[in-house]
Design a protein around this nucleic acid. Structure first.
Lengths: 190, 190
DNA sequence: CTACTATTAGTACCTAGTCTTAATATCTCG
DNA sequence: CGAGATATTAAGACTAGGTACTAATAGTAG
């Protein structure tokens, strides 16, 4: 009934991977060996103790949290901005952006990058999108880097309505085009 | 220099909140009191010990992980669908969807809901958005429920190009309108 | 039979606590 | 000022879930 060392260690790795909250004692019982054997196994496999594992999971969550905040505020990373004129952002397409089936980026992520860049380029407290006319000219795959360039095309001095053109590229190939008509609350800050 | 109990306990709560990884010893040093005092404080405030706190953070991360997967696949919850005809989804606007400053939903979330509904309504393995013409007719606030209704308007039998109209409502008031021109890979499944 | 690997056992020690009892310190009110 | 209440500190026994190390035993291959 009892498996050999190699098998046990393989299973041990898997078991801990999908449940890092298991103690050596529980593992020993699960595999029908002594606690000491489990500890030797962990030592050989360089698997840290329960508390360390839990801590790692917790710390990773903290990192993610810090990382997810800026993602929420602006989709993509703004690398250049000249208020009311131009702005550029980059977005690295990762597995969370693509369809599972074909690894093609979901449209709304490209839209989100462009839209939030259009919001950012406007020099106003409250910029909202009123209308948009967009076009996806080529599908973007996981691993590609999308560079979005926004240009303020027109500002209506009375209403404040601002038209922003955004073109997104992968290796100088246009993958997305969008005209955004933006609404701004206050007066134009110069 | 040393603050009173009330002040200390208030600060203690905050300190632990934004760094759950701090030990009683470090806290004692930070507040210039003994470790025992910190422990009494935690007891009074029902703050669990370090290891429990870390475990909670880790467990929460595990829960979140499970929860964040379905959110990725379809934005909003599909409540009705008739392939190649109509579909309806709802999206409850929460704080993660809005601008911090004014609690207005960021445009790309409404777009994402509409776009992913347009993708879903199409009876094909691979549906991609080619173009979209959208309009945000009223701003949506945190706490509101957006109901998106998609209608397939036209299917080009040769190219497979499909036009989907999406209207989104909050309490029967139109908040978003969009015409999506969708591209489908294979033939139309009937 | 010996050499080697694998397993088990036992001991001392560690961290970051809990729980309990008891001794001080400090504050407050009459 | 002093008594009582509240706050703080200390000390001791115990806990989980380990590490690190030494030593004994079991099983197997040459």
């Amino acid at each position: 009934m009892r498996m050999n060392k190699k098998e046990r260690q393989k299973l041990l790795t898997e078991t801990i991977q999908d449940n890092p909250f298991i103690t050596d004692e529980d593992l020993a019982e699960k595999f029908g060996v002594s606690v000491q054997t489990i500890r030797l196994d962990r030592l050989e496999l360089s698997i840290p103790e329960l508390r360390e594992r839990i801590k790692n999971v917790a710390e990773k969550r903290f990192e993610d949290e810090v990382r997810s905040l800026p993602i929420e505020e602006v989709i993509g990373e703004i690398i250049d901005i000249e208020l009311d004129h131009t702005a550029i952002s980059i977005l690295d397409v990762k597995k969370e952006h693509v369809f599972v089936r074909n690894q093609i980026a979901r449209g709304h992520h490209l839209f989100a990058q462009a839209n939030s860049l259009a919001v950012a380029v406007i020099n106003d407290e409250l910029a909202l999108t009123a209308k948009a006319n967009i076009q996806f000219t080529r599908s973007v795959k996981e691993g590609e880097r999308v560079i979005a360039k926004a240009k303020v095309a027109k500002i209506d001095q009375n209403s404040g309505r601002t038209t922003v053109e955004v073109h997104s590229f992968v290796n100088s190939e246009v993958v997305f085009k969008g005209d955004f008509e933006m609404y701004r609350s206050g007066k134009i800050i110069d």
